[in-house]
């Protein structure tokens, strides 16, 4: 039994349709510059996840700086590694399947790529028990979504226009009627 199998408790991982081998690759601290070089890609991914609709999207909210800073400072080394490897995998996938870098892919292709990584992250959570997820760290797409959502919902534009931000409520109205297109509160 090799080391990785030992970590996984001997689980056979063939046939899952994706490689988990990159997850949980222990590593040293990533270089901040590795992340900063990916800002453009993160910005594109963010807009795909939270697009502009009748309210501002992720691009307008401008959260790639936060995502980079948060992954670098708030995540442990394993998750940082999962995140940066995930970005690379995504880029490789785009080139292999569509012969283009992700940011140059068509909206339809982008959607297909994200669906693939979204599915991968879901299978991972489905397949591995909590304890093993702890050893392997969080999957790339989960991390990406987490920081894009936090970044968006706590940004000026996201909180005030995407959601409803009540800076000083003054009173508590315990039971109100839902308004048309009622946004949820930005803070608790």
């Amino acid at each position: 039994m090799n080391r990785r199998q030992a970590i996984l408790g001997g689980v056979t991982v063939f046939g899952l349709g994706f490689s988990i081998f990159k997850w949980g690759r222990p590593g040293k601290r990533i270089d901040l510059s590795d992340l900063e070089h990916q800002k453009k890609l993160i910005e594109e991914l963010a807009e795909c996840i939270i697009p502009e609709t009748d309210t501002p999207g992720a691009k307008t909210a401008g959260l790639q700086d936060f995502v980079v800073k948060a992954v670098y400072n708030c995540e442990n080394l394993r998750n940082q590694r999962n995140f940066i490897d995930g970005l690379q995998d995504l880029e490789d996938y785009a080139i292999n399947h569509f012969k283009k870098s992700f940011i140059h892919c068509s909206p339809k292709d982008k959607k297909e790529i994200l669906s693939y990584f979204d599915q991968q992250s879901r299978s991972f959570n489905l397949f591995f028990k909590k304890a093993k997820r702890k050893i392997l760290g969080d999957p790339f797409f989960y991390l990406l979504k987490k920081y894009i959502v936090i970044g968006y919902c706590t940004s000026i534009k996201g909180a005030n226009q995407g959601l409803a931000y009540d800076y000083i409520p003054s009173t508590y109205e315990s039971c109100t009627n839902i308004l048309k297109d009622q946004k949820s509160w930005a803070t608790k």
Binding site: D166, P169, Y172, T176, N177, I178, K188
Partner: peptide, 8 residues
């Protein structure tokens, strides 16, 4: 159809 306003 119900919600609240403010953060008690």
């Amino acid at each position: 159809d119900k919600y609240y306003k403010g953060r008690r």
